[in-house]
Simulated scan of single mutants.
Amino acid sequence: MNRRPPFKFCSACGHLVEFRIPEGDTRERHICPSCGTIHYQNPRNVVGTVPIWQDRVLLCRRAIEPRLGFWTLPAGFMEIGETTGEGAARETLEEAGAEVEIGALFSMLNVPHVHQVHIFYLADMRSPEFAAGEESLEVRLFTEPEIPWDDIAFPTVAETLRFYFADRAAGRFRMHTHDITRPMLQL
């Protein structure tokens, strides 16, 4: 079993927690023996877009770790109270200064070794206007031959870009799923 990073104290009452299988469950959980609270830890959703202007895709060069200086699609953690599409549009505006029209769900990539699910939407840019946000060093539109493949930040971004260009060449777009089953920094 893939154990979650431990934490020591109950967020409800402050008592030390135990790591065991609760009654009626099949997985080990952090459980407070004092108040009975079961602390579930679930994957975090990363939401983003494949922002498109004509025949180009908008990428951001990261100003933060992890992978500082590498290129990525605009994406980030989904916030409470928003849909995946709303989060993807927000992240695109925050990181790339681009307003987009959210289109079809395009890729969903499971990244279990970091407890994440990465979700990307196709998105048409409303105009060719964009600017680097606080988390980006620069933002740029790329044609397929210009993509800096050796400098792509994450396997999920590389996979999504490969899916996009293959679908575009085939003349049809479909939803893609894939599992990234091991940590990979080299693409």
Rank of each mutant, 00 (worst) to 15 (best):
C60Q: 13
A89E: 11
D151F: 03
E86M: 14
E159F: 14
A104C: 04
P128W: 11
G87C: 09
A63W: 10
C10A: 06
Q186H: 06
R126S: 10
E144P: 12
V114W: 14
R20P: 00
N42A: 11
F70E: 00
F70C: 00
I38W: 03
F120H: 12
I147Q: 10
I64D: 07
D55W: 06
S11W: 09
F165K: 02
P33Q: 02
C13G: 04
V157I: 04
R172T: 05
G87F: 05
L122Y: 01
D179F: 03
E129M: 10
V17D: 02
P145I: 08
Q54S: 14
L161N: 03
E94N: 07
R62V: 01
A153D: 00
P183F: 14
V50K: 14
E99N: 07
P6N: 05
T83S: 15
F163I: 01
V114E: 15
H176Q: 04
P5K: 04
S107P: 05
R172C: 01
L93V: 08
G87R: 05
H115E: 11
F19E: 07
E99K: 15
G103T: 00
H39K: 01
Y121V: 01
P148S: 06
E135R: 07
Y121T: 11
E95D: 12
E138R: 11
D167V: 07
D179I: 10
Q41D: 04
R29Q: 12
G14S: 02
R172H: 12
R27E: 06
M1G: 14
G76W: 09
R62A: 00
F9A: 00
H113Y: 15
S127D: 03
F173Q: 02
F7D: 03
F7P: 00
R20W: 02
P74D: 09
D55T: 12
T49D: 06
V46N: 06
I147L: 10
P66Q: 04
T49L: 09
G48V: 08
M1N: 03
T181H: 10
E101L: 12
T143W: 02
M1R: 01
T72Y: 01
R174T: 11
E65V: 06
R172Q: 14
V57T: 14
G97R: 07
N2D: 13
I52Y: 09
Q41M: 05
D179V: 10
R162A: 07
I80D: 13
Q54H: 15
E159M: 10
E79F: 00
F130V: 14
T26Y: 09
F7E: 06
R20T: 01
W149Q: 04
A132E: 09
G85D: 13
A88D: 10
C10V: 09
A89P: 05
A123S: 11
A75N: 13
A63P: 01
R168W: 03
F70S: 00
V139P: 08
F77Q: 14
L105N: 01
L73Y: 03
A104L: 10
E138N: 09
D25W: 13
E65F: 07
A63L: 13
D167H: 03
L58I: 08
R126K: 15
L58W: 03
E159L: 09
G171M: 12
F165S: 00
T156D: 08
L187I: 07
S136E: 05
Q186W: 11
F142A: 12
E94Q: 11
M108F: 04
R61I: 08
I147E: 13
T156R: 04
E18C: 09
P112V: 08
